[in-house]
């Protein structure tokens, strides 16, 4: 069973506050991702790359088609799964590094990073130790570790987000522009981390605007504009 199979998914946004305006984004998007490869979603901005990632994570609704995730040895269709099934898939199978960190008030960076391991039942001290190692590798200043990330800079928040996404051994990992606000040294760290995930057999799907990073990590590129429903000039 492939970790991830996407069949004919479609997305249209209906803006009820603008008189029910319909914004078709894409339709009939299909692809598969094998263990150990990094599939890159390509195409100009606005074609719906981020929307696809959010649909893969169960964060956006799916209008048509199916998203089959190999979850605990059986396929789960995320397009139709119940909330508690989606949450179980996220806990065990599906990791996600979003573009922006949604900071939880009062929770220190170290706990934000360790959280996915604790949710999997890991020993708390061990989870925090691994979180420290991840933040150190991404060069986040040690004095920030015990602070909530709400007041961090964009690049610091992104590194917390990356550390959190990469800390667990989820079989599938979704990456939404993980290197957008990083300097060259930290970009190189993230590229190494992606290569390690591939070597460990993780199936990755990512969006990378940085061409250099994309060329280094991509196993294949799917051009999303092929499926675009937007007319020229829209």
């Amino acid at each position: 069973m492939l970790p991830l199979r996407v069949r004919d998914i479609a997305k249209t946004f209906v803006m009820h506050l603008r008189g029910g305006l319909r914004l078709p984004v894409f339709s009939n998007v299909s692809f598969e991702v094998a263990a150990g490869e990094c599939l890159v979603l390509g195409g100009p901005s606005g074609v719906g790359k981020s929307s696809i990632l959010k649909m893969l994570y169960g964060n956006y609704g799916v209008d048509a088609g199916e998203i089959l995730v190999a979850h605990a040895c059986r396929p789960v269709d995320l397009a139709k799964a119940l909330p508690r099934e989606v949450l179980d898939v996220r806990r065990l199978t599906l990791g996600y590094v979003s573009q922006f960190l949604r900071a939880i008030p009062r929770v220190p960076a170290l706990e934000v990073v360790a959280d996915p391991l604790i949710a999997l039942g890991s020993d708390r001290a061990e989870a925090l130790e691994r979180a420290e190692a991840a933040l150190a590798r991404l060069n986040l200043p040690r004095e920030l570790w015990s602070l909530p990330p709400a007041t961090f800079s964009g690049g610091e928040q992104q590194r917390v987000n990356i550390a959190r996404g990469f800390i667990s051994d989820h079989p599938i990992l979704l990456l939404d522009e993980p290197t957008a606000s990083l300097d060259a040294a930290n970009r190189a760290v993230v590229v190494d981390m992606i290569e390690e995930k591939k070597a460990a057999g993780t199936a990755l799907v990512g969006i990378f605007h940085d061409e250099d990073v994309r060329d280094r990590v991509a196993s294949r590129v799917v051009d999303v504009s092929r499926y675009s429903q937007r007319r020229a000039g829209q």
């Binding site: 209906v14 169960g58 964060n59 609704g61 909330p83 989606v86 949450l87």
Partner: peptide, 11 residues
Amino acid sequence: GLTDRVLDDPR
């Protein structure tokens, strides 16, 4: 639905 789905993609 799922909390983040309803809040991020309200129908």
